[in-house]
Design a protein around this nucleic acid. Structure first.
Lengths: 323, 323
DNA sequence: GGCTCAGGCGCTCAAATGAGCGGACAGTGG
DNA sequence: CCACTGTCCGCTCATTTGAGCGCCTGAGCC
């Protein structure tokens, strides 16, 4: 059962030659004057005895384990979890932006149409993007300037510049004061054109907000009353303006009519929708969005990823059942 | 050069399937819809990027790395280094004894003749030995009772009992007061018989002492004057009573004639001579013994092993040159 | 002594894998 | 615009490896 000291040493010797020096088992066997079968059995025993340990670690700031787990549990095409401290939002956004930029660079081809929505978490994409296949870049939502003045138009232009493709922007707010003015805005030619292009978008980047004060720029914008009315209709979060319910499917509400931007129905037919989100408080909303299937990619940080996985009842940590 | 986040994740995913779940590369490739070549390249990249780390560690209290290194550097047939704290001699002796017992159990066959010399470090063998091929067990040296009364006769009897073979003991001290009384003692029938059997010994266990106060039971026994005279003749240590010089070869001295026990010349023709030693201060003497070739096995602890390797000029840490 | 049974060993044959090659493709400088 | 260059990819073919089998040996038990 337990190997003797001389066996342990032989195991280690064989393991060093095999794993570190990349020699073949037959080769090692010849040198030691034993059969290649014995070498194989020694290596097996070495693993069992703990002489050889194979660790698969996170590297390059990416938590691979959580990433794969998210991919598996939510059936995502793209899931990337970065290992960054939760409590520095600026650093976190920058890092998420870098990763999102990477993903877009890999995913987007010249035949794609890229759509960018407004969200704080998308801000980091602009500075990080370098090369992108030339393709149209479409503004998916109205603008909602952040406190620092950066907005979706700037982002679309910056990305289009990196791509060499055409930016398609329009000037309209994300949230109109009422349904009527929203209708008027939507009739503006460039808004209509963008809306038309939206149906041709194949890759989109969006943010996810939770329907609570401070966790959604839209919730904060519409005011508490409108927010609460939407909640009564089942809204738990929004995907760059598209309101969703607990099961992640689009929810119609009077508020929807005030929002200028991509709708849940439009998102549903886009091939690749990469979402960005941070903050553990958003676990509920993000989980809903992922389950609902409107998004099929998530870029986030370890804190939120863990919260998501903890909340998901299906097969917690059941690696062996991974298919 | 540096892999992107998605690549890192793919690497980790593939690595997990390959290393942890023991799936074949082709299998993984089919599942992921990529070629088996790409899987292989991802695994290579994963190793290079540090996503996959293969550690080959000490296990079961045996420092495999130092063991193999000693084996290589000194050309030993058996080298076992235990990871035990230096400063608990009793624990250390017990552990060395256990390991020595293991080695003897593996090395000794029914056709062998086992010889046991006196040394403090051999004391642990007695309690540890369990099964041994039936073979004659020969006392190699005179007795030199330790402060706790345990001696070589007890050891020989205990080992013979475990073996089922015959113990061959004699009553004589390890060091006689003078050459004349040593001669007398050697003429005793049972001493002579043991000496005769010694020439038939095929496996021996011995201790190594350094020729300094407190580092050799013999040095301590003979007194400082005789000790210093021997040192003047080049003695740097002793292998269970057989005096050796700096190059590890036997040294003749007047003192030799007072010692009742196996000689260097006798050791030289024994197939397997396993030595036990502990204490970094003994590095010089043990190094000499190993280089001299009178012993071809060493069981020791990490502290002394490191001291030995540090002192050895040849190929320090030159793993790549290991043959 | 003779018995069985478990464990270690090396064999065969099929599957898995690696080395090296050439094609495709993107970036680069004339 | 086009040749050049380095990189990534998948192919072929030879080598390496694994699965499963039967043999042998030694221990325990009649």
């Amino acid at each position: 059962m337990t190997p003797s000291s001389t066996e342990l040493i032989l195991m280690a010797r064989v393991a060093r030659q095999y794993y570190r020096d990349d020699r073949s088992k037959s080769d090692i066997a010849d040198e030691l004057g034993i059969s290649r079968f014995r070498v194989a059995r020694l290596l097996d025993a070495a693993k069992r005895a703990g002489v050889v340990t194979i660790r698969i670690e996170s590297a390059g700031g990416v938590n691979t384990e959580l990433s794969v787990e998210l991919q598996r549990v939510f059936g995502l095409a793209h899931a990337i979890v970065v290992d960054v401290d939760d409590d520095e939002p600026e650093t976190l956004r920058r890092r998420l932006g870098e990763v999102a930029a990477e993903v877009l660079q890999e995913v987007v081809g010249p035949e794609d149409v890229l759509g960018l929505a407004w969200a704080r978490s998308l801000r980091g994409i602009g500075p990080a993007i370098r090369n992108l296949a030339p393709c149209p870049v479409v503004q998916l939502t109205g603008a909602l300037s952040g406190p620092d003045g950066s907005d979706v138009l700037e982002l679309v232009r910056r990305v289009a510049q990196a791509s060499g493709g055409t930016p398609h922007v329009f000037y309209a707010p994300l949230v109109a004061p009422d349904a009527a003015s929203a209708r008027t805005l939507r009739r503006q030619p460039e808004v209509a054109r963008a809306a038309e292009l939206t149906s041709r978008v194949t890759v989109a980047a969006v943010g996810i907000g939770a329907w609570q004060p401070g966790l959604s720029t839209i919730y904060d914008k519409v005011g508490r009353d409108a927010g609460e009315r939407a909640r009564d209709l089942g809204v738990v979060g929004e995907i760059s303006g598209a309101l969703i319910g607990a099961d992640g499917s689009p929810v119609q509400s009077p508020l929807s009519r005030r929002i200028i931007g991509v709708t849940g129905e439009q998102l549903a037919v886009i091939d690749t929708v990469i979402s960005l989100a941070y903050g553990r408080d958003k676990a509920g909303a993000v989980g809903a969005a992922l389950r609902g299937g409107l998004v099929n990619g998530l870029i986030t940080h370890a804190g939120l990823a863990r919260a998501l996985l903890d909340a998901e009842p299906s097969l917690p940590g059941a690696h062996a059942l991974a298919d």
